[in-house]
Each structure stands twice: as structure tokens, then as C-alpha cells.
Simulated assay, not measured.
Amino acid sequence: MTIAFITGANKGLGFAAAGQLGRSGAKVILGARDAGKGAAAAARLREQDIDAEAVKIDVVDLASVRAAAARVRDEHGQLDILINNAGVLPEATGADRVTGPMDVRMFKDTFDTNVFGAVAVTEAFLPLLRAAPAARIVNVSSTMGSLADQADPQSGYYGMVLPAYQTSKAALNSMTIALSKALAGTAVKVNAVCPGWVQTDLGGADNKAAAPLTPDEGASIITKLALIGDDGPTGGFFDQSGPVRW
């Protein structure tokens, strides 16, 4: 059976991706910072006849990350799919606390989850991914992290100025490329995806109301890259339309 672990999976994109993977036949492990919310989310999936369980994980707490990986190792022995979905956008959700475009505290808070959290989780779970016959890593990024789009006045993303969030996603994209090179010659494929502007809590209440995509619609690209075959890409960046410019 395919086993998938998803961070930030008790709601939004992570929960939607868990449902889609579960309906494809995978066993889904919902990583959640709040154990109670994770357990409740897994119970909702089980009501849909999806094989789901929850594991407590706080991606900014290395001990928590390692404990989650150890539990998956002890219970399953390997991992087929890792989705680094947990993310924050405090420049939107805490805009009243932003002191300026180079707010070092905001950069640190954002990078702790969006970059260092993804690195910590990947490091801890990589031995389990290597133990699988054909593992997949999907890093949930954003076209807001595309340097090409940030610099292109014709891009719809040009006017979006969220320095901490954008640079964190650019860093996550770079990590995706580097990791794909490090894993070249193995059965592990790693890609970054942009789900689009989705109705989640990430951008705050106003942005959630304005977003055009449902979590299920946004999660479809996550699921697609998580389920690619041996002839699928690695080291790429994709949205619903295809490759995204770096």
C-alpha cells in the first residue's frame, strides 16, 4: 500500500490533498501541530472510507519532527509520498505587525516554517523515502516565489509585494532543485508545485474570500505530482497549466 505523509494536513490544501490521495487508494498520515485537530480531521476522512491517521508534528520543532518520523518508521517501515505543505504568510495574517519591507522578525518567522521546516521534515523522513520502491516529495510553493514573475511587469504576480513570503518560496524552489540533483540516480523524485490562489486561511480572511479556487481544486496539482510514474519529472516547478518559470 502507498503511504503518504502530509504536513499541515488538518485543514485547507493539506486536508484536500489527503482526501484525494486517500481516494486513490493511499494510506494517508495527516501531520498536524494540534493533535486534537489532526485526530478530528483523520476521523472525517475515515468516515469517507479513507485509510487515515494523524501524527502530531510541529515543523519548527526539531524534536517533534524527529518523533513523527520515528513513529512512521516504527509503524510502517517506509514512506512513499512526502508532501511539505505546512506554510505561513504572516505578512498577510499579521499585517498590523509588519514594520516594513525588511522586517527581520517577519523573515525569520516565515523562513522557520516555509524553509527550515520543510528541510527538517525532509531530512527526517528521507531514510524512509529511500526505503520505498519509488518515492515522491512534493514541496508546496507559490508562483509568488518565481524570480521571473516578480521581475516581469506583464506578470499577474508582479504587483504582489510580500518580501518574506516570496523569498521563502524562492528558497524552497532552490532547495527542490538541489535535492533533486542530490537524489539523481535514486527512485526518489522531488518537485515543487503552485496550487494557485486558494480559499484557505493562509492569506487572511479577506484573501480567503477573494480566492477563486477551492482547496480541492488547488490540491489537484499536489496530488498529480505525488502520483507521477517512473517517467515523471523531477526537479521541476508546476502549476495547473504546466511548468512555472523559476
Rank of each mutant, 00 (worst) to 15 (best):
F125E: 06
T176V: 14
M144N: 13
I137R: 00
P153N: 09
R130V: 06
Q166M: 09
D149G: 02
N173A: 09
S142P: 15
A118D: 03
A178W: 15
G159T: 14
P133S: 12
A164Q: 02
T143N: 09
A134Q: 14
T167E: 00
R105A: 00
A178Y: 14
A164R: 01
F116Q: 03
V138F: 07
P163L: 02
L172M: 14
K169N: 12
D112Q: 12
M160D: 04
A170W: 01
P163K: 04
K169W: 08
A187L: 04
R105F: 02
D109V: 07
A118I: 06
V188D: 09
M160P: 00
T122N: 07
S180T: 14
I137P: 02
A170L: 08
S155P: 07
L172N: 10
D149M: 12
F116V: 00
L179Y: 05
A171Q: 07
S168F: 02
R105N: 00
T167W: 03
Y158S: 09
A124N: 12
F125S: 08
A131Y: 15
M175P: 07
Y165Q: 06
A170G: 09
L183I: 08
L162A: 11
T143S: 14
Q154F: 07
T122L: 11
V115R: 01
A132R: 05
V140K: 04
Y157D: 13
S180R: 11
F116Y: 13
A120R: 10
A182G: 06
I177E: 11
V115T: 02
M106R: 00
S155L: 12
D152G: 10
S146I: 02
A184Q: 08
L162F: 05
S141N: 15
Y158V: 08
T110P: 03
A131L: 12
L179E: 02
T167Y: 02
K181R: 15
V140H: 07
N173M: 11
A170S: 15
Y157K: 05
R105Q: 03
A120Q: 13
S180M: 14
S168C: 11
A135Q: 04
T113Q: 02
Q166R: 13
L172C: 13
T167P: 05
N173L: 09
L126P: 13
M175G: 11
A170Q: 10
A170R: 06
D109G: 01
F111N: 01
F107K: 00
K108C: 00
L147V: 15
L162E: 03
P163V: 05
A164K: 00
P133V: 08
M106G: 00
S142R: 01
Q150A: 15
Q150S: 15
A131S: 13
A170H: 08
Y157V: 12
V140Y: 04
M160S: 12
A187H: 12
M106N: 00
Q150H: 06
A120S: 14
R136I: 05
P163Y: 03
A148N: 11
